[in-house]
Write a protein that binds this DNA or RNA. Structure first.
Lengths: 123, 123
DNA sequence: TATTATAGTTACTAAAAAGATACTATTGGG
DNA sequence: CCCAATAGTATCTTTTTAGTAACTATAATA
């Protein structure tokens, strides 16, 4: 991830922290439950192990999620939101709701882009 | 931007549309005013012309912003939120507020990352 | 006739993010 | 002695994103 230190607009701070490819999804899943690494992976089938670890590490670094490793074998590691993460809940809920309401509009637009790209590739 | 068509979690829809490097900022600026291309550029000093055009085009494509070009010379083009864009306002406000509250925590974390990266570069 | 203002576009390059794949550690159980 | 289960790492390649710099159009103005 590109690292931006100086922020001119407060929303950049938040987006910086939420805009990893899977971070929003991870945060949403952790909003109402603690999950183990493997459980998160099951909930996000398309994610690779590497990406899941990486996104979780960054969220941890930004103090949005807690990581608790139990000293067992096979290992057990549980992820949950920190207080900072909890503060994001209302915003996450709204983003989720907007997505629900606009999925059709957005999906169509993306589809058109995709078709356009394929066309270009032909030329 | 990578184009994702199938969404498994509704928040992905929203983040897909908001997570361009400057999209959140642009949307925030347009939340309470119509702005010309050049005005946007002035408000976001670090953005290049290319990026501003590109981000605006994508926002337009996703139907979050309106683009109105007046037939004058020199040209005048005005950008504003569409109804869909307006629907995002409450969420944007919350993201902004969270950023305001957590800027210190996040900035420190980013700073540490940066220092870590510099260290690595030395090895 | 040259210059300015505005809103772009184009081509090329560099940097960052993501993907694929193989590998690690540990211990209980068969 | 080998395998399964869990939560990762490590390395390399590809894709995506962003940055740089030069170029365009047009009419009004000096």
């Amino acid at each position: 991830m590109e690292i931006r230190i100086k922020y001119n607009h407060p929303i950049e701070v938040t987006l910086d922290v939420v805009c990893g490819k899977w971070k929003g999804v991870i945060l949403c899943l952790l909003m109402d439950q603690t999950l183990r690494f493997g459980e998160l992976k099951k909930e996000i089938p398309a994610i690779t192990q590497k990406m899941l670890t990486q996104q979780l590490r960054e969220l941890e670094e930004d103090q949005l999620v807690n990581r608790v490793a139990y000293n067992e074998i096979p290992p057990r590691v549980e992820y949950s939101l920190t207080a900072y993460g909890e503060d994001l809940k209302p915003a996450l809920e709204m983003l989720k709701e907007w997505g629900n309401n606009h999925i059709n509009v957005v999906a169509e637009s993306k589809l058109e882009q995709k078709l356009g790209d394929l066309q270009e590739a032909d030329d």
